[in-house]
Nucleic acid binder design. Sequence first.
DNA 1: ATCCCACCTGGAGCCCACTCCAGGTCAAGC
DNA 2: GCTTGACCTGGAGTGGGCTCCAGGTGGGAT
Lengths: 124, 124
Amino acid sequence: MLPGVSVYTPGQVVEETGFSLDTLRYYERIGLLSSIRRNAAGQRRFSDEDIGWLGMVRCLRDTGMPIAEMVRFAELARAGDHTVRDRIALLEAHDERVEAQITTLQERQRAIRAKIAYYRSVVD
Amino acid sequence: MLPGVSVYTPGQVVEETGFSLDTLRYYERIGLLSSIRRNAAGQRRFSDEDIGWLGMVRCLRDTGMPIAEMVRFAELARAGDHTVRDRIALLEAHDERVEAQITTLQERQRAIRAKIAYYRSVVD
DNA sequence: ATCCCACCTGGAGCCCACTCCAGGTCAAGC
DNA sequence: GCTTGACCTGGAGTGGGCTCCAGGTGGGAT
């Protein structure tokens, strides 16, 4: 979020978030973004809140959460404060998967490095 | 690899590697597995070497290497010892991506945990 | 005033990595 | 000797996650 700015054009959001314009539109279509405000001409105008939400989406996406589950999370968020416990449960379950993912990745990395070391021993 | 065994039926390979039968056939079709030996009836009989290679494939796949690049690696491996340096280069480049992946994952995990902590503060 | 470029919509297309299917063969246990 | 089931092939289908397209509108700089 740029300081002192609270409304963003699609182009600025692309800049800030790294999502493509098509991806942003796609996310809105499927309900991962609640409908974005429009100006008189029907063009999207994103708020700080939208940008913040997109930051969350990036976190979840980068950690491999399927879109369908992100949409579920978005629905909970839209449904109001009484869903906070459900949201915690969802994020905790995801956090465990992320933890497992990191562990697996580290194990696999060790194996790959062992292979590299082996190849080095062959080539030297 | 089971001790004292050096030839495996497709079913045993599915058991051992966790790849589905269809996936194994697919991998052979696209050249990720060099053609597997067959018995008189044309059924696949995998060797210890095949199993070892599938272990490598699992490492690379689990760390997000695209199939096309794994096929390239397989081709290098089949081409003989003079490609060892290329294989090292390929694995090192991949290792760097894996490192970056782990770092990103850890960062995102921190953000997710912060969100969980925030939700907890709201709910308590 | 005009140009251009950012933006709009609905819908089709694409890529990856499988996964499934129809129709058939073989071998081993009952 | 018959059934069962593991296996075979070529090819089509699937699902996820975008990405592109045609055809059109609007607004800001020159």
